[in-house]
Amino acid sequence: MMPEVGMFRKVLLVDDDENILQGYLRNLRRGFAVQVATGGAEAIRLLESQGPFALLVADMRMPGMSGLELLEVARMKWPGMIRVMLTGNADQKTAVEAVNRGQVFRFLNKPCLPEDLARVIEAGLRQHQLQEAERELLEKTLTGSLQVLTDLLSLIDPPSFGWSQVVKERARIVAQSLGFGDIWCLEIAALLAPIGRLALPREVAQATLSDDRLPMKEYEMLRRVPEVGANLLASIPRMEGVVEIIRYQSKGFDGEGFPEDGVRGEDIPLGARILRPLLDFMAIERIRGDKRVAMEALKLKGECYDPAVLQAVEACLLGHAAPGPVLHTVLPCPIRSLQAGHCLAENLTTATGKVLLHAGTHLRPPHLLLIRDAGDLLGLQEPAYIVPEGE
């Protein structure tokens, strides 16, 4: 989401000389939304309480926290904010440190005329607006790409999509118990873990849903599903972490499994180490219908899993911390009344009992077309059951 227009012109000036600050303030406040701070600590308080700011101008030499230290903190905590340094010490070492540590946009020598500072601030604000526009475009591209992929998976392989939604919720709970920071990345990886199945021939994809042993050729196709999925996603911006989790989702903690690259133990991405036992757990639970049986089966192959992750999976799914069922209000809805935005509370099935769309699917226009066509050709069991909006 793009920031408010006013935010694009919010500027924070930091200098320990109040007379200099007041002079700048008088000359700049007609063109910019300027606030001032007399030191690094005060500046950080303003950035936290009055932000976001588009641009920060800091004097190099200040008592306590130096301007360089302030810019370095700002770079880490507010990376999208443009940073400018003012200094009376124009030596090369200072300039190099400012660029390397603070990643400054401009470097100005004191004394600096107000009109010169205004020109630099204007240029910095234009740069900030370009950055924000690019960020919004990337976010929309990412959101749209993910929506297309999840739509495809839910339409072409409804069983896998339904199971991946369960794995996604479990992965979030396990990750939180382990203190894993990038929950969004893990949830997307869990949801798209089976995306490589879209490249399987239909008969092979159907055969993998049974408990029968696959012939070697089909087994090798299935074994490469993580690689295919990772390659499908690799060109989408900001998906690097998701791609690595999906690539290593089948990798054993002992180094066995795909990809055969010698990576093992804690060198495997933590997200993949979380996903591996949860996917295996889901596969066994689906066939045997018992969580405790699934957990015991995982323990028999303990070398395949990170011990800390396996312990967290058991605690979260079977222990006292295991979440109880989430209770929602469920409403019957005639098939013809289903709309984009509705969430299915139960599987939507054909007249013969075949699952068309799994519970948890948020309906979008492609789903409604599928429902219409399937209803005309196969007939659908009435009514559908949905979760009201807001639950």
Rank of each mutant, 00 (worst) to 15 (best):
L198R: 15
T143W: 12
L138N: 12
G196Y: 11
V167P: 06
K217Q: 15
E240N: 15
D212W: 07
I245G: 00
M216Y: 11
V243D: 08
P237K: 11
S145N: 09
Q206M: 15
T208G: 00
Q176N: 15
I245C: 04
Q176I: 12
P201E: 10
V242Y: 06
G229L: 00
L108A: 07
A133W: 08
E220L: 13
M221H: 06
A133V: 14
I121H: 12
E203P: 06
L214Q: 04
D212P: 00
P114C: 03
G196S: 04
N109S: 10
A190P: 03
A118D: 08
G179F: 12
D212M: 08
L209M: 09
I183V: 07
D211H: 14
R172L: 10
V242M: 12
Q147C: 09
V148P: 06
V204T: 08
L113C: 07
E240G: 13
R135I: 06
E240H: 11
V120A: 11
G144M: 12
M221L: 13
G124F: 01
E132K: 10
V166A: 02
T141D: 13
A193V: 04
F180W: 05
G229N: 00
A207I: 05
A205K: 01
R172M: 15
G124A: 05
N231D: 09
L137N: 12
V228I: 05
L113T: 05
C112L: 09
E218D: 15
I195Y: 06
A207V: 04
E244Q: 15
D212K: 11
Q129A: 14
G241M: 12
L200P: 04
E134T: 07
L125N: 06
G241P: 08
G124L: 03
V120W: 03
S145D: 07
V228P: 01
V148D: 13
D212A: 09
L153D: 00
C112T: 11
E136S: 15
A205I: 08
A190W: 02
K110V: 04
M216N: 11
C112V: 11
E139G: 10
L125R: 09
A123T: 08
P194A: 02
Q176F: 08
V242G: 05
G241N: 05
R197D: 01
L209T: 01
T150W: 00
D151H: 05
L191Y: 00
F107T: 14
V243F: 11
E132G: 03
Q129E: 10
I236W: 13
A118M: 06
T141R: 12
R170F: 04
